[in-house]
Nucleic acid binder design. Structure first.
Lengths: 223, 223
DNA sequence: TGAATAGTGTCTGTAAGACAATATTCC
DNA sequence: GGAATATTGTCTTACAGACACTATTCA
């Protein structure tokens, strides 16, 4: 019976912030279909080695980009007979957030970063997967600590504010922003450490508290 | 190769509000594994007939409960080698919201409604699927029109407030609630129609405006 | 000292919650 | 009229944004 002739894959939307713009990582496909065309990192689920789809996503990300410990969250599952020319397929999509440093340190020269707002058409339904991920990220950024994962290991509050502003596309009130970050209680000062200063007062460095490294903090109300 | 030996299914968390409690619909399984044990309605994706996983979910719901037009939204995808004894499996889970009337009119006597807070262990990982759906619903209810889909075709504002309160588990301020519903602008008065009254003033009936029947309204801030 | 950015104090306007008054129904 | 619930007006409180002042660094 044809019931289970379903191709099962994972796809990754690896997002980072560079030059004040949200960018998505694309890789040239190493096989057909769409060989050599830039697309989302993805691959088949390996039933003999993957513990679940999340592990499959982490494996694919590690194999294709050498990034091992991103913030990773399931996005949605895309499916249908037409999205993959090989047949009826299911793609469990995840989105990963990393700072630009992590991508640069991974030294994967094949990775291209493209601003999500200037994205070209992509193979499969990858464009709509990216759009869904960006919408999800922007929506969640309004009321959560999600943007911190784009800011790197340590950051100043002004830097973090610029990350939030880049995601939300609007300027935020400085006083309110700092009040909120304080209320959320997820940041800790790095004692006596300050961001590189120019000819001005340097800013206190912070990092996410350990207990928030893999979970989100939600705000009662938006920023 | 074993790469694609993955079982692909959809599961449905059909939720309704009865007696002031959120309840989930269970059906006795009609085949092995877990034959005759109550579980979520679910089934294989039929690659030859389903347009995508959402259509598969609607088909399964229609076949198993005779409910054709629920509010339906993808929840998450559950996967792994152990959740189904038949092998490595993927379940794309959807949650559906309907008023209790819709379930009663469907006349599916096999459907059991169980309060989600008193749920027994279920086969597969269905318990954790239900828990995820309930958490999602409760979380989204704080800032969206989602609960309206549990309230039926028409309802009074006091009835709707009781729905929100049942979901959020706390009393809401009456004035603020009505202000919010008004601001959201998704309801319309049913002209000259009122809820059944006892020995007191009857309440104005409302319904969701047509343009909101399949989309959510989000609040700037919570209730 | 001046320029530049970090960090804070305080005022104001807006929105949510408390309280209470009025409205409508059936008995 | 009395009981019960619906609906609305208004006061109070809490919080977000605006503005401005202080702090700290380098040139």
């Amino acid at each position: 019976m044809s019931v289970n002739q379903v191709i099962c894959t994972v796809d990754l939307v690896l997002l980072t912030l560079q030059a004040g713009e949200l960018q998505v990582a694309l890789l040239k496909r190493d096989r057909e279909p769409f060989k050599d065309v830039p697309a989302l990192p993805g691959g088949f689920i390996h039933a003999d080695e993957d513990g679940d789809a999340r592990f499959a996503a982490l494996r694919v990300l590690r194999e294709k980009t050498h990034i091992a410990t991103p913030y990773l969250e399931q996005l949605a599952t895309f499916s249908g007979p037409a999205r993959d020319p090989r047949g009826w397929s299911v793609s469990i999509a995840y989105y990963a957030l990393v700072s630009i440093d992590v991508i640069q340190q991974a030294r994967q020269d094949q990775v291209q970063l493209i601003p999500v707002d200037k994205l070209m058409p992509l193979p499969f339904d990858h464009k709509s997967i990216v759009d869904t991920a960006v919408a999800r990220l922007r929506s969640k950024s309004q009321y959560s600590s999600l943007p911190c994962y784009l800011a790197g290991e340590s950051f100043t509050l002004p830097q973090l504010q610029r990350v939030y502003e880049a995601l939300m596309g609007e300027a935020l009130n400085k006083v309110s922003f700092r009040r909120k970050m304080n209320e959320m209680g997820m940041l800790e000062e790095l004692d006596g450490q300050f961001g590189a200063a120019g000819a001005h007062r340097p800013a206190q460095l912070y990092r996410l508290k350990q207990e928030y490294k893999e979970s989100l903090t939600l705000l009662e109300r938006g920023l």
